[in-house]
Amino acid sequence: MVRKEVADHIRSWRFIVLLLLVVLTFFGSMYISLSNISRAVGNTNDPDHLFLYLKLLTITDGTLPPFHVFIGFLGPLLGIGLGFDAINAEQNNGTLTRLLAQPVYRDNLLLAKFTGALIVISVLFLSLGLLMIGGGLLFTGVKIEPQEFLRIICFIVLSIIYIGFWLSLSILLSVIFKQAATSALTAIGIWLFFTIFYQILLNLIVKAFLPDPALLSQEEVAKYNNVILTFLRFVPSQLYTDGTTTLLMPSVRSLGPLSMEQMANAIPAPLSLRDSLLIVWPQLCGLTAATMVCFALAYYFFMRREIRT
């Protein structure tokens, strides 16, 4: 079943269009990065200037955003595009009844839908990551350090988990709604709300209920900033942004405000991969837990759904 799902995704025009969109943005970002890599590496004021291959994923001249920013925006569309009609299209075409008439459990069907799409996404991003490393080797001739390679692999894994959340959410909506168009529009609406409108609403609420920052002490301002960051991290894209910033910029020591005492006692050096993973671990667990919750809800509703009508 997984093999069939993978083959169906690869042959579909929907996946081909999404693939071309992601690959074109990748090559555009890599072209901008390679064009400015010498200037970025030569900037000694940048604490991350020695990490050449990480710079390929983060530097830009303002023409195009870096690749990880593109993934934060296009990744949900890829996950939604591969899962919004996973169940309701089968039922509308009449193939779901014939499929479950065979000795096939419903949970196996959901797992095959999710696993097949996730395999396609994983192969795509792993190929793009290796292509970026190979292009950097050919263009610069500088060998990649083990820590850089591991950070890029961790970035790819985080991207797969992030897109897997939207894939799981779209499969859940395909179970709830009978029409594929309804599930697709609902998933896109949720994505737009979290991407654009959530932060606008949060800023309005903060301005309405929190006191004027000019009247607060430094410690009180730090507490209010932590509260705002906590609410922002209910958004999957914010978790992904925090994770990619920490993994691709080793000089990032914290994802929240630091006190003067913490800044004074900090050693001005890039963090090790282990320390960066400790910082990003809550974001990784949050995205994984959200994915599992969406899949569990999809399983619950699918088990209670009547498929013979």
Rank of each mutant, 00 (worst) to 15 (best):
I59Q: 06
I59L: 09
I59E: 00
I59W: 01
T60P: 09
T60W: 02
T60S: 13
D61E: 12
D61V: 06
G62M: 00
T63Y: 03
T63V: 06
L64Q: 12
L64N: 07
P65H: 02
P65Y: 09
P65V: 12
P65R: 10
P66Q: 01
P66H: 02
P66R: 05
F67Q: 12
F67N: 01
F67R: 06
H68A: 00
H68F: 10
V69Q: 14
V69F: 14
I71T: 14
G72N: 13
F73K: 15
F73Q: 14
L74K: 02
L74M: 06
G75I: 01
G75S: 00
G75L: 07
G75A: 00
G75R: 00
P76L: 10
P76H: 10
L77H: 06
L77Y: 08
L78T: 12
L78F: 15
G79A: 07
I80H: 02
I80A: 03
I80L: 04
G81Q: 01
G81Y: 02
G83H: 04
G83Q: 04
G83V: 09
G83P: 06
F84Y: 12
D85M: 10
A86H: 09
A86I: 11
A86K: 10
I87N: 00
A89K: 11
A89M: 10
A89T: 09
E90C: 10
E90S: 09
Q91P: 01
Q91R: 12
Q91D: 04
N92K: 11
N92W: 04
N92G: 15
G94W: 02
L96P: 05
L96Y: 05
T97D: 12
T97W: 12
R98D: 09
R98A: 11
L99V: 12
L99P: 07
L99F: 11
L100I: 09
P103Q: 03
P103V: 08
V104M: 14
V104C: 06
Y105D: 15
Y105T: 15
R106L: 00
R106D: 05
D107V: 15
N108V: 13
L109N: 03
L110D: 05
L110G: 11
L111Q: 15
L111W: 13
L111N: 14
A112F: 05
A112M: 05
A112R: 02
A112E: 04
K113C: 00
K113N: 07
K113A: 06
F114G: 05
T115E: 08
G116P: 00
G116M: 05
G116F: 07
A117T: 04
A117W: 07
A117S: 13
L118Q: 14
L118R: 01
L118N: 09
I119D: 01
I119M: 08
V120H: 08
V120C: 07
I121N: 11
S122G: 04
S122N: 08
V123R: 11
V123L: 13
L124D: 06
L124Q: 03
L124N: 04
L124C: 05
F125A: 07
F125S: 05
F125H: 11
S127M: 11
G129R: 11
G129I: 08
L130F: 10
L130V: 14
L131C: 11
L131T: 14
M132C: 13
M132V: 10
M132S: 14
I133D: 08
I133K: 10
I133V: 14
G134D: 10
G135S: 13
G135L: 15
G135Q: 12
G136N: 00
G136P: 02
